[in-house]
């Protein structure tokens, strides 16, 4: 996709989600002295974007050191704040690299219910298919009604083979078989869908660990990527989600979905500070082309309404 087109689409997606935040800052800083009251208001704006009280306080503290007492305009505050946030996000803005040494490169997709795992797999399949790769999809969500059919439709749309088992089948066994098939058929990416599960359900989390264990019998290095799909509307609980999934299945990166709504996904800033996990991509719509690389500067500037 053309770079210019990409930026305008990302901006379009983000602009709606930032209207409120941008408006808030404009209201606060038409032109005034950056004093305690002003900083407090700015901190509230960040909290309102789901940064959380701690991350917001840290950003504001850094801001205070460099800007306190200055006469500032709306534009200056936005620029400086965007830079402050971009600096936090830049280290985690890393695209998902497929390692050609692995045939296939196994990507396990995990997350709580309803974050958009299956849709994200559909989008990734489309992207990689367009790049000339040969992805195979595994319908590992054998629990939710019609989850298999949902992935099969994505398989048809993206011309990728889908491995599915019987309803309620063992997801680990299915993943094992699929990995074997992908090796025989010469697919270079294996995208494994899993049932959504709340991170505090230890039995379900153990099942996820089992999928990994069993796949390693085929390929001891699998899975090569474990993607946690996060819903941008999620509040502070996202921190707990990332913590537990990371411990249980060694998450290697995040994908943040539903950024085209009114939610601003500020939790990503807190996550970047706490875990430093790469954010590979963001979802800004339901169509296959609505998955974009995560760009720290764009995201931060979008977040403050620039």
């Amino acid at each position: 996709m053309a770079l210019g087109g990409f930026f305008s689409r990302l901006k379009e997606g983000l602009s709606r989600s930032t209207q409120k935040l941008g408006g808030g800052i404009t209201a606060v800083f038409v032109r005034r002295r950056l004093d305690d009251a002003a900083l407090d208001e700015l901190e509230e704006v960040l909290i309102g974007a789901d940064l959380g009280t701690e991350a917001a306080a840290r950003v504001i503290a850094a801001f205070r050191r460099s800007r306190f007492g200055k006469e500032v305009t709306d534009q200056e505050v936005k620029e400086a704040l965007a830079e402050e946030i971009a600096a936090i996000l830049r280290p985690v803005a890393r695209p998902l690299e497929l390692d050609p040494a692995h045939r296939p490169h196994v990507v396990l997709v995990v997350g709580v219910n309803g974050t958009g795992k299956t849709t994200t797999i559909g989008k990734l399949a489309q992207l990689w298919h367009e790049q000339g790769r040969r992805p195979m999809l595994v319908a590992g969500d054998t629990f939710r009604a019609a989850a298999v059919e949902q992935l099969q439709i994505w398989g048809q749309r993206t011309s990728c083979p889908v491995v599915a088992g019987a309803p309620e089948a063992d997801a680990a066994g299915l993943a094992f078989d699929a990995l074997g098939r992908a090796r025989t058929d010469g697919n270079d990416v294996l995208l494994v869908d899993t049932a959504g599960r709340l991170h505090n359900k230890s039995v379900l989390m153990d099942e996820l660990a089992k999928i990994i264990r069993v796949m390693r019998k085929q390929d001891p290095t699998a899975p090569h990527s474990v993607l946690l799909v996060l819903d941008a509307t999620t509040g502070q609980n996202a921190i707990q989600q990332v913590k537990v999934f990371k411990e249980m299945v060694a998450v290697t990166g995040l994908i943040v979905t539903k950024l085209d709504g009114s939610a601003r996904g500020g939790i990503v800033v807190a996550l970047a500070e706490s875990f430093g996990l790469p954010v590979h991509a963001v979802g800004v719509g339901e169509q296959a082309a609505d998955l974009r690389p995560f760009d720290a500067t764009d995201f931060a500037r979008g977040l403050v309404g620039l």
Partner: peptide, 30 residues
């Protein structure tokens, strides 16, 4: 698990449709 956006979503849906009740899901989470 919804964060700060809860107000925006609730307000928009309520203004458009006149919500008569709310169902809160995933209360088995933490």
């Amino acid at each position: 698990m919804t964060g700060q956006d809860a107000v925006n979503t609730a307000r928009a849906f309520h203004e458009a449709l006149g919500i008569t009740g709310i169902v809160l899901t995933r209360m088995d989470g933490d």
